[in-house]
């Protein structure tokens, strides 16, 4: 009898404990459906949303369309994008999407050889400069295969921006606004030829009853 009761209890406990779990599922990265949303963080869908809106705005503005060079497309460098939020975020989650968008416009291409402050030291990929500095004069390499001087393309435009967070709380409600600001500067004139901002506002409410 006791064994039966114990078995039944264990079985019930097992069912109760495992019934809360659901099978993992794949989600569409381009859709909002089924994704976890948190108020105080920038979620995956927020990065996508902000990047899409900013890239569309840049493309529609036609700022990078006029070709500055006969033999190649305009070159865009990514300068400083400041994180002014309360979260430790990887700015590349936004910038990589925007760079892909810029490359896809067909009017411009992004350089990885020049970075923040217009230096090669802060370049996303320091190999462009590195192979020149390190391999020239190295007998181990066939000299004709080493990149020649004066072949790198200097940027025509610089993309910079800022992500700002502002929080408001009132009673049980709390709201966070993430503002994504971007500017494209024509490096010939120093004028910002395109600027836009995207706001993502999220609101939550503390439950009255809970765990």
């Amino acid at each position: 009898m006791n064994i039966k009761v114990m078995s039944l209890s264990l079985l019930t406990a097992g069912v109760v404990l495992t019934s809360c779990q659901s099978d993992p599922v794949y989600l569409d990265p381009d859709s909002m459906d089924g994704k976890v949303v948190t108020v105080e963080d920038i979620n995956q869908q927020d990065w996508g949303n902000a990047a899409d809106q900013l890239t569309n705005s840049l493309r529609m503005s036609g700022s990078i369309a006029p070709q500055k060079h006969k033999d190649h497309k305009n070159v865009v460098m990514v300068s400083r994008v400041r994180n002014e939020t309360n979260e430790h975020i990887d700015i590349d989650l936004l910038m990589k999407k925007i760079r892909i968008g810029i490359n896809r416009t067909g009017h411009a291409m992004v350089t990885t050889a020049v970075g923040v402050g217009g230096t090669t030291a802060s370049a996303e990929d320091d190999a462009s400069k590195g192979v020149r500095d390190n391999l020239r004069g190295d007998d181990e390499f066939k000299s004709s295969t080493i990149q020649r001087k004066g072949t790198m393309l200097a940027p025509d435009f610089s993309l910079s921006g800022k992500i700002i967070q502002s929080d408001v709380k009132s009673g049980r409600s709390y709201q966070t606004t993430f503002t994504f600001q971007m500017s494209l500067t024509d490096l010939t004139t120093g004028i910002a030829i395109w600027e836009d901002e995207v706001e993502i506002i999220k609101k939550g409410k503390k439950g009255i009853f809970g765990k």
């Binding site: 049980r172 503390k206 439950g207 009255i208 009853f209 809970g210 765990k211």
Partner: peptide
């Protein structure tokens, strides 16, 4: 983030 009246 706990609810106002939480079991915990």
């Amino acid at each position: 983030l706990r609810a106002m009246i939480s079991l915990t």
